[in-house]
């Protein structure tokens, strides 16, 4: 099994997902299964194969350096649980 309990808990914490012990146990085997399955790809020799980054031959589109957006603070904070004077209000961040 490639994923142990400690790894599951660590990943959950990094992703800010709260999980129960039961779920952790289940995820341990599920995540291991997924990784083992993907690990089959290791059987192929890809040493000289360029990573695939696109299906069609296309290059990254670029935008011109012009201000075309913004000035919509009402919309930006509309869904915020709490706002004040167009600021997002969040629980105190302690450094």
């Amino acid at each position: 099994m490639s994923v142990d309990r400690a790894t599951v808990l660590r990943i959950a914490r990094l992703a800010r997902v709260a999980i129960t012990d039961e779920e952790a146990q289940r995820l341990e085997s599920e995540l291991s299964g997924i990784l083992d399955w993907v690990a089959q790809l290791d059987e192929l020799d890809t040493a000289n194969v360029e990573p695939m980054t696109r299906v069609e031959a296309m290059t990254m589109k670029m935008r011109k350096d012009e201000v075309t957006d913004g000035f919509c603070a009402d919309d930006i904070v509309k869904n915020a649980p709490e706002e004040d004077d167009h600021y997002f209000v969040v629980p105190k961040i302690v450094e």
Binding site: C72, A73, D85
Partner: peptide, 16 residues
């Protein structure tokens, strides 16, 4: 396409 200008009103230089 939002502005980089310093000192705008809160969340005014913000796009979606």
């Amino acid at each position: 396409g939002a502005s980089t200008e310093f000192g705008g009103d809160p969340n005014s230089h913000v796009s979606l």
